[in-house]
Design a protein around this nucleic acid. Structure first.
Length: 331
DNA sequence: AACAGTTGCAACCGCATCGGG
DNA sequence: GCCCGATGCGGTTGCAACTGT
């Protein structure tokens, strides 16, 4: 944290403030954003009467003021998901955050660096006496569900999940049975395997009841900041979860060029590599609306060449089975 | 109680990318 | 194609709060 600059100091000139945000500044930004929505950030800063740069306003909004933010400690399930996603994505915090709605990249990054990394370090410095089952012990210490303690190269990725390591592990992981979360929900699709075909790694899609995960507790789980596949207006009275798909292998290798902007800018949660297809808008109110659905659900996993990248994952089947999905209790 | 060391996390910084002119 | 402002991302910093001695 940084000391807030004395407010009087910069009022006399046009110098921009830095450091901690005061409650007054927060109020100004919050009110402006709620009344006007997101625009050009430098305009936001100016029009809201803040002596901050647009960048600073954006950061404050995204990391702290956004109404859809989930506060509080990470649940074991979230932790597990973070560990797994990090093993797949490396330090792509924004992409990991995109799959943990209500959490920010900064939050996840801090959590990783302060908590998980340390735990991994401790693990590696205190090897189990039973060396034959050290991976199991590590999984234990990492609180990984026994169901995913498989000899699939996963552990080494937890221990060394640099992008380089990721690449080298690719052949292992994308053919490996994938972890099952605590409640038995395989987040990687019906068959539990990543598809090793050229276009498809995308198997991950959950729509499961998880009351409160997105919901606004104060409003009965109306879904403040809920993120969903835009199928119908105001989905998620009980708070529904859609964990967006991971990228294709190709996009894994060049994610920036494919995703570019708007992956998750705080107001829009883009579930697609094609921004014209499905964009679920996170409203500031309790309602979650979908818009720009002309492309239909089926097209939401098409790449720029209109090729389906959804692979074996059958959305219709998934939708059919939604009711049977177990809870993903992230509370 | 006082001090030192550690931790958690908000915020900054620099760079890459995008899009409009 | 180039320039420039806006935006997004990941790494890093620095301080308040916490913990140990």
């Amino acid at each position: 944290m940084r000391k807030p600059e004395p407010s009087g100091k910069n009022n006399s000139n046009n110098k921009l403030r830095k450091g901690l945000w005061s409650p007054e500044e927060d109020d100004k930004l919050m009110n402006y954003m709620l009344n006007n929505g997101q625009g050009c950030w430098s305009d936001v800063a100016r029009n809201a009467g803040l002596q901050r740069c647009g960048k600073s306003c954006r950061l404050r909004w995204i990391n702290y003021l956004r109404p859809d933010l989930k506060r509080g400690a990470f649940s074991p399930q979230e932790e597990e998901l973070i560990i797994h996603l990090h093993s797949l994505l490396g330090n792509r915090w924004s992409q990991i955050a995109a799959r943990l709605p209500g959490r920010t990249d900064n939050e996840i990054k801090n959590f990783w660096n302060s908590t998980i990394k340390k735990r991994l370090k401790n693990l590696s410095s205190t090897p189990s006496p039973n060396t034959s089952d050290s991976s199991s012990d590590a999984m234990e210490a990492l609180n990984i569900n026994p169901a995913c303690r498989q000899d699939s190269g996963m552990l080494s990725m937890y221990m060394d999940s640099s992008p380089t390591s990721m690449q080298s592990q690719w052949n292992n992981i994308h053919r490996a049975p994938l972890p099952v979360l605590e409640h038995g929900l395989n987040v990687f699709g019906a068959n539990g395997y990543l598809n090793s075909s050229s276009q498809c790694m995308t198997q991950m899609g959950i729509i499961g009841g998880c009351d409160g995960f997105f919901g606004d507790h104060n409003n009965g789980g109306g879904g403040g900041g809920g993120v969903l596949l835009g199928v119908a207006d105001n989905i998620g009275a009980e708070g529904e979860l859609f964990v967006p798909p991971l990228e294709t292998e190709e996009s894994f290798k060049s994610e920036r060029s494919i995703h570019g902007r708007n992956c998750n800018n705080g107001n829009y949660f883009n579930t697609s590599t094609n921004t014209n297809n499905v964009v679920a808008k996170i409203n500031n109110s309790d309602n979650v609306k979908s818009e720009n659905l002309a492309g239909g659900v089926e097209s939401c996993f098409q790449d720029d060449q209109d090729q389906l990248i959804i692979g074996d994952w059958d959305f219709e089947d998934l939708m059919k089975d939604v009711s049977s999905f177990p809870f993903l209790d992230f509370q």
